[in-house]
Design a protein around this nucleic acid. Structure first.
Lengths: 197, 197
DNA sequence: CCACAAAGATAGCGAGCACTCCCTATCTGA
DNA sequence: TCAGATAGGGAGTGCTCGCTATCTTTGTGG
């Protein structure tokens, strides 16, 4: 059936299955309920296999966090390639991003890291790197004037924060009208504060 | 030492101690680590006492959530009494609120509720009520024109979302310069979009 | 004053947790 | 081809969890 694989390939495949499963489980049941047992069931491997590649559950989560970062970068980069300068589309994209399972998993990790020293030390640098990358987007991909790089970056990141928090509460209680108004307003903000004259 | 108290007083005092302790523990160690044992140690009572007044841990958390809501309303109301129309002060207040332990506890509950059906059913209505109350603030306390009530409410709530998400990541990684710029920008937004002409 | 009720403390239960031990299966290098 | 090495599986381990049973302490009503 399955072809012969090298040890390195088997190893990489199992690690990938585990990090993918971790992201999915974090999104589905949250950080506290994302037990190694559940993650292994999702990944289709045993706990013995998990602990061969990751010394602790925290190591696995930290690795999954890197995978989350990579997916975020990917999706943003792909979007900007095809972006035609339409600000409402940009706002809609940012909002959609904060509502993906991947972002839900990210939020679970960030919230958990606040009260977990070791996780914070592992995730903090990832967050910093990601924020720096996001801050550079307006000048790099949206045509913002370099002299306004700082302001434009702050605004872009702020809009992302805005939708991040909205997505967190939208899981509990929706208000379609409010959300629609906010989306239009965010598009205006982006255009007004980032677009070149 | 302690005077004689009625049963009703003892009951109310213990419940208050437990909800206060729950908020503090949620803020300190997060939802997952907020065990009944730790909460009882903080409250200075036994687990037996806890489970006399609350059937489940979830009941206790739900009760604590109501206490969180009450504290939030209190603080906002108190601030607006002494607010002198200074928009930077308003922005600073909103940001400070999102950085309090009480708000950290609130965020823990909201995040946990996303992946816990029962908690979501208990907390969802509280969130909805709180949002509605917040949306009414601009017209009620900030002098916004009633015909722009909806827009002004959306903007105010959006600024709160913005600082909520910022506070969540600020626990992992600070960027003083960015935060300062955002604070000034938020004050401008509030003035521009809410203040009467 | 005292029978009763309500509140609080203590010890412990079953379940699920992260993690380990040891075994088998698969791959590698000579 | 085969000894050694690496990957994966399965059955535990000790521990902590939410929760309960039972006992003692404190307040209540007649």
């Amino acid at each position: 059936m399955s072809a012969r694989r090298t040890q390195a390939e088997r190893r990489a495949a199992t690690i990938a299955k585990l990090t993918d499963a971790t992201i999915a489980v974090l999104a589905d049941v949250g950080y506290a309920q994302a037990s190694t047992k559940v993650i292994c069931e999702r990944a289709g491997c045993s706990q013995g296999a998990l602990f061969r590649h990751f010394a602790t559950r925290l190591d696995l989560v930290a690795e999954a966090t890197l995978a989350i970062e990579a997916r975020h970068l990917d999706r943003f980069a792909t979007f900007f390639e095809g972006w035609g300068g339409k600000w409402p589309a940009l706002a809609a994209f940012v909002r959609a991003q904060t509502r993906t399972p991947v972002h839900a998993a990210w939020r679970e990790v960030v919230v958990a890291a606040r009260t977990d020293v070791e996780l914070r030390e592992r995730v903090g640098p990832v967050l910093q790197r990601f924020e720096t990358w996001l801050m550079a987007i307006p000048v790099r991909s949206l045509g913002a004037a370099p002299r306004r790089a700082e302001h434009a970056g702050m605004v872009f990141l702020s809009v992302l924060h805005l939708f991040d928090s909205e997505a967190g509460t939208a899981a509990l209680h929706r208000n379609e009208e409010l959300e629609a108004g906010r989306l239009r307003w965010a598009a205006d903000i982006l255009r007004r504060e980032i677009a070149p004259d």
